[in-house]
């Protein structure tokens, strides 16, 4: 694993998200709770909607374009919709956000 500092926890509003640009495309980093974050691909499996702009609720996000709902833990679309998005390890240390860039690169190579 290669943990890369991508910013401060407080840079993301509670129940909001920000994007990180990577060679593998944009990654959305969601803050679901005061001290809980998830990272996924920013691209909806339906028609590529920007997930970081969706409404974040529980540990899920709703795509802003046509309301597909994803679990941020598994990346699976919920309910009747079928599809999934990539998820990436991200953690909080001393208020900083660390993203596993190896996982991002691995996903890109695969």
């Amino acid at each position: 694993m290669s943990w890369t500092d991508i910013g401060a926890l407080t840079d993301i509003p509670l129940r909001g998200a920000r994007i990180v640009k990577t060679p593998a495309g944009c990654i959305a980093v969601f803050r679901t709770d005061e001290a809980e974050v998830f990272a996924t691909s920013n691209k909806c499996a339906h028609k590529g909607g920007p997930l970081a702009e969706g409404i974040v609720h529980g540990k899920q996000v709703t795509c802003p374009l046509h309301n597909w709902v994803y679990s941020l833990e598994t990346g699976e679309a919920q309910g009747a919709d079928e599809g999934s998005i990539a998820t990436y390890p991200v953690k909080i240390e001393d208020g900083r956000l660390l993203l596993d860039t190896d996982a991002v690169a691995a996903r890109n190579a695969a």
Partner: peptide, 15 residues
């Protein structure tokens, strides 16, 4: 203003 920019840009570093 900051919220409109990406949190981080890792494309340059990786290159």
């Amino acid at each position: 203003k900051a919220q409109y920019a990406p949190l981080a840009d890792l494309t340059t570093e990786a290159a």
